[in-house]
């Protein structure tokens, strides 16, 4: 087992543990903070898998911007403690049954997929410069579409924020 593999398993355990803690917390602030840990660990994983630029964007955008947005909203919304209604047990059994089948299928595929799949991957890294050239050379249209998507999301979020306030003031009047 190489040092890369040791790092991979440590990071994988960190991702799974922090995501598991995030989805089970009652308090939303705790959940979001565990999610930040999970996303930073994912950025480390990207770095390990040879994607340094994507890892940096993961830290800046996901763990930075998106999670700060989450924290703002969570602190804006005052929720009564213990308001989370319990989920019906029958639904839980059905959900975990489906999940168990899914995990079993994944494990079977993983362990019976022949010697080809068991060979470790060669370590490689795409330099940020090469990645940027490739992105703007081959995928310039997708980059433009993403920018338009972000603009539309901005306008939509602005409209939703204004619509909620207008409706509230309209309901107070009569």
């Amino acid at each position: 087992m190489t040092v890369y593999a040791v790092f991979f398993y440590i990071i994988a355990a960190l991702i799974i543990a922090s995501a598991g803690l995030a989805i089970t917390r009652k308090h939303m602030v705790h959940a979001v903070l565990y999610l930040v840990v999970s996303f930073i660990a994912t950025a480390l994983l990207f770095y390990l898998l040879g994607a340094p630029l994507v890892g940096i964007f993961q830290v800046i955008l996901y763990a930075g911007a998106i999670m700060v947005l989450f924290l703002f909203i969570v602190m804006m919304i005052r929720m009564a403690p213990g308001a989370d209604r319990p989920f019906p047990a029958g639904h839980f059994i059905a959900a975990f049954g489906v999940c168990g089948v899914y995990i079993a299928a994944a494990l079977v595929l993983a362990f019976f997929s022949g010697p080809e799949a068991g060979r470790p991957m060669a370590a490689a890294a795409a330099s940020p410069a090469a990645f940027g050239f490739y992105l703007f050379d081959q995928h310039w249209l997708a980059v433009e579409m993403i920018s338009i998507l972000l603009l539309v999301a901005l306008i939509g979020a602005l409209h939703l924020g204004r619509a909620g306030r207008r409706k509230q003031s309209g309901n107070k009047e009569p």
Binding site: L53, V54, I73, M76, F131, A142, A153, G156, A157
Partner: peptide
């Protein structure tokens, strides 16, 4: 890696609109 970058961008758009709807 290109697709991972696009996923991050789409997630940013989705979260901004989703949280605006929650508010």
């Amino acid at each position: 890696q290109v697709m991972a970058l696009f996923i991050v961008a789409v997630a940013a758009a989705e979260v901004s609109v989703g949280l605006a709807m929650v508010v």
